Computed example of a mutant assay.
Amino acid sequence: MTIKVVRGNPTPEELAAALAVVRAHAAAAATEPPGAATGPRDSWSDPARLAARRVPQPGPTTWARTYWPS
């Protein structure tokens, strides 16, 4: 693994701390089995939330009904 500082001038202690965080994260990711659940899913990211109501069928007046509640 190669780490390159592209901006700034970190002290050796700051660089060591950053590398420790990166290595700890990589070690934790390596111990998880593939496809493991990462925790409860947030309802904001649920795709069913976006399609909770019917969308208008395509047609000449669809643009006018797009944002009006049915």
Rank of each mutant, 00 (worst) to 15 (best):
S70P: 14
W68F: 06
D46W: 01
Q57N: 14
R41D: 11
R54E: 12
A24R: 14
A64I: 08
W44F: 12
R23Y: 03
T31F: 04
G8D: 03
N9G: 06
R41E: 14
V21C: 03
A27E: 10
R65F: 10
V22M: 09
R53F: 14
P40Y: 08
S70C: 04
L50R: 11
A26V: 07
E13W: 08
T11Y: 04
A24H: 11
R7P: 00
R54V: 05
V5M: 06
Y67E: 10
P33N: 05
A51D: 13
V22E: 04
A18Q: 14
N9I: 06
M1I: 03
T62I: 05
T61E: 14
P60Y: 01
W44A: 14
Q57Y: 13
A51P: 00
Y67C: 05
K4N: 11
Q57S: 15
S43Q: 08
A30Q: 06
A27V: 04
P12I: 04
A27Y: 01
V21A: 07
A52P: 00
A29R: 13
A48P: 00
R49N: 04
T38G: 09
L19Y: 03
P10Q: 06
A28P: 01
N9T: 15
P34V: 00
I3S: 12
I3W: 11
T62P: 00
T2M: 07
T31K: 10
D42A: 11
S45T: 10
Q57R: 15
R7A: 15
V21Y: 03
A18I: 10
P40H: 12
S70Y: 10
R7V: 10
W44Q: 07
A18F: 11
T38F: 03
A17V: 09
M1T: 02
P56Q: 09
T2F: 04
D46N: 14
G35V: 04
T31A: 14
A26E: 13
S45Y: 09
A51W: 01
A17I: 09
W63G: 12
K4R: 15
R23D: 11
S43V: 09
T31G: 05
Y67G: 11
E32Y: 05
V22P: 00
T31R: 13
G8Y: 01
T62L: 09
Q57M: 11
K4F: 09
P12T: 08
G8W: 01
L50N: 07
D46H: 03
A36Y: 04
W68N: 05
T11H: 04
L50E: 11
V21H: 04
P56D: 09
A26S: 07
V22L: 15
